[in-house]
Write a protein that binds this DNA or RNA. Structure first.
Lengths: 376, 376
DNA sequence: GCATTTCATGTTAGCGGTCACGCGAACGCT
DNA sequence: AGCGTTCGCGTGACCGCTAACATGAAATGC
């Protein structure tokens, strides 16, 4: 809380570096001079001016040396580097951001961090962005459109250089906000013909259709779809729609069996519950299509205990190709998504745009892959 | 890229609000006057001055209204709120940060996002911090001390108001950097008597000892420890140490069986490999202690295929109480950690300190719980 | 050899907010 | 009525850094 002894030139304005020693060793110098000019409780932090003085150059030269070392003379550079080291200077990026109007940050908004499948995407995103000097802000919506909107709003205050967001369905206001920021935006994990800006995704609808096609091809006829369907989870809705549309194509006029709950945790135990629900409501079901591997593997694990033989009595499919899917016996038939790649591709798109170049393809379909294993 | 037409008062300095219309509709006004004062390619963004003008007050009043609505008169507040709405003003937090020396951010550093167990912690952290206006920066180290150091360094540039970090073992430089920031720091997921600042964790060592105690109590005598032990994963090392120490107490002089690999993905398939390795190197092993549930459940699932009866032929234990642990048959005996609570407690500690108050207990032991299920 | 370009560095004026303080009006108390 | 307080709002000076321009010396061109 100590104030620092600054010059008190009543007119000259900011003269400060001429007061400080070039070392940081004067910790706790409490000489609160009388005519001290008003001073906010500033950080005692080392500033660029300290480095400049230590190196005997102007702050501008320090700034240049930091952002592009080749733009200053080699010996000057060496002196500056030494000065940075001895003063333990850490650049204040907020000041840099304000002056340069580039924040070197990317805002990422995902439904939930806990779903390891999204975590992979974020890992991919940061793996590409961090080495380029960008930092990633993370927020999660818990599948609530209102939270997404408020996140976008509050993140906008940081003036990120780019947005990454999972999902393509937003409130009107969210879309407007995103567009107004004027920075590149990548939507992902879904598909739309009218992205806000860029898109790295795939069709959940088509993926589920391919699941149904496969099941029907294997001779299953009484298919049911089940899962936790949070109101804001549009990807789940698209999957359901894909199921319904494929079902209608194969069995025109037959009402598809759909058993969903709108809340509840996305855990394996929930999958077991849903399996039971399906069998209660539609006892003759011969194939259960789960909205996620988490639920499907819970159900699959429970089958032996319930006396159900998979895939003979019942086929089970999942979505996401989680780690567990390949470890179960029988293996879980599922849709594999290049989750990490969504992150890296998105980062690359953002990077190019943030660095000023245009990108040719603003939409990228990473596709999906039907992995047929023993469960169906 | 259009410059904006600003006042050119050669002396008065920033007079700008008197030039702009209060609406944002003058897009693209390209009147580059001759004597135009030098202008950087600034954002055309709405500033607080625009809002102030629209509301007929000073910027200071707008600032006050935004940060503490009760500090201005009710009708003034209403006018300002209306002005904010009509100008679509979004506060520039970088400027706020620079002026106020508070960034309203917390930097979080974790080993990997993909481990859902850490994701829970982050979710807890942000759930508490976001409503308070703090945003969370996330970085992952992939268990590399050097990356941790460089993350701390680059995050420091943002002048976060707090640090959250998983682990208590850092490079000397990392520790020094953290201390020098002068902001509150919470270390977590481990235990130490000399935390950098605050600590929310538990003893991995004690947890593993309780696992061994339990196994020995159940009559198992030939225990093996196995897992992926990345060089920078100190929590894994503490668990191993706990295993070894407990083993020594129960079987003095007997060399404990330890089978580890230093690299490889933390997936279930790796658990199967490790199980096979253990049985190759120590065929008479009757209990395998895994460093993580991921590996343990992989192994447990593989057992029936390998003709191993659990827990009769072989006991298996894990760590973390992942979702799957309770769904397997038999259930996986493991250590449960209040992973989410680590996040929320850490956030609360940080919050109090960031808001200026001291905290009485700078260390918090969230403990662990041995969950005995069928596998051991 | 002198004008022109290039290179390395310095100077000036902000970026968009907030802090400390000032000041007048309304309020409270004796 | 007189005077100290509180309340509501404005003024001026920065926060630490960088864009744009300026400058002088060395390198280059004809």
């Amino acid at each position: 809380m100590h104030k620092k002894a600054a010059g008190r030139c009543p007119k000259a304005g900011r003269r400060k570096q001429d007061m400080r020693s070039s070392q940081v060793s004067d910790e706790g110098q409490l000489s609160l001079r009388k005519a001290e000019s008003r001073r906010r409780s500033a950080t005692r932090a080392v500033t660029m001016a300290d480095v400049a003085q230590a190196a005997g150059v102007s702050t501008q030269t320090v700034s240049r040396a930091l952002r592009d070392p080749r733009s200053v003379g080699p010996d000057t550079l060496a002196r500056i580097e030494e000065a940075v080291r001895e003063t333990r200077y850490v650049q204040n990026l907020a000041a840099s951001h304000l002056a340069s109007n580039r924040s070197m940050t990317v805002a990422a908004i995902i439904p939930t961090i806990s779903a390891s499948i999204f975590a992979e995407t974020i890992q991919g995103l940061t793996d590409v962005l961090l080495p380029e000097g960008y930092q990633v802000f993370l927020g999660h919506t818990d599948y609530m459109a209102a939270r997404e909107e408020s996140l976008v709003r509050s993140f906008s205050g940081r003036r990120p250089d780019g947005f990454f967001i999972i999902g393509t369905r937003h409130t009107q206001e969210t879309t407007a906000l995103l567009k107004r920021t004027g920075v590149p935006v990548v939507e992902s994990w879904s598909w739309t013909n009218r992205p806000v800006d860029m898109l790295v995704g795939f069709s959940n609808h088509a993926a589920l259709m391919s699941v149904v096609d496969h099941l029907v091809g294997r001779g299953y006829r009484r298919l049911a779809f089940t899962g936790v369907m949070k109101p804001g989870d549009h990807r789940a809705k698209e999957r359901l729609k894909g199921f319904q549309d494929a079902h209608e194509r194969h069995f025109p006029g037959v009402t598809p069996r759909v058993v969903t709950v709108t809340s509840g945790p996305m855990v394996m135990a929930t999958g077991v519950e849903l399996l039971k629900l399906v069998r209660e409501q539609h006892p003759d079901t011969d194939a259960v299509v789960f909205v996620s591997d988490v639920l499907a593997s819970g159900a699959l694990l429970a089958c032996s205990g319930l006396g159900i033989s998979v895939p003979k009595d019942l086929a089970i499919t999942g979505f996401g190709n989680y780690d567990i899917a390949g470890q179960l016996t029988p293996g879980l038939t599922t849709i594999a998504i290049a989750s990490r790649r969504i992150g890296t591709e998105s980062a690359n798109l953002l990077l190019r745009r943030m660095q000023g170049s245009e990108v040719e393809n603003r939409t990228q379909d990473v596709g999906f892959e039907l992995l047929v294993r023993g469960s169906a």
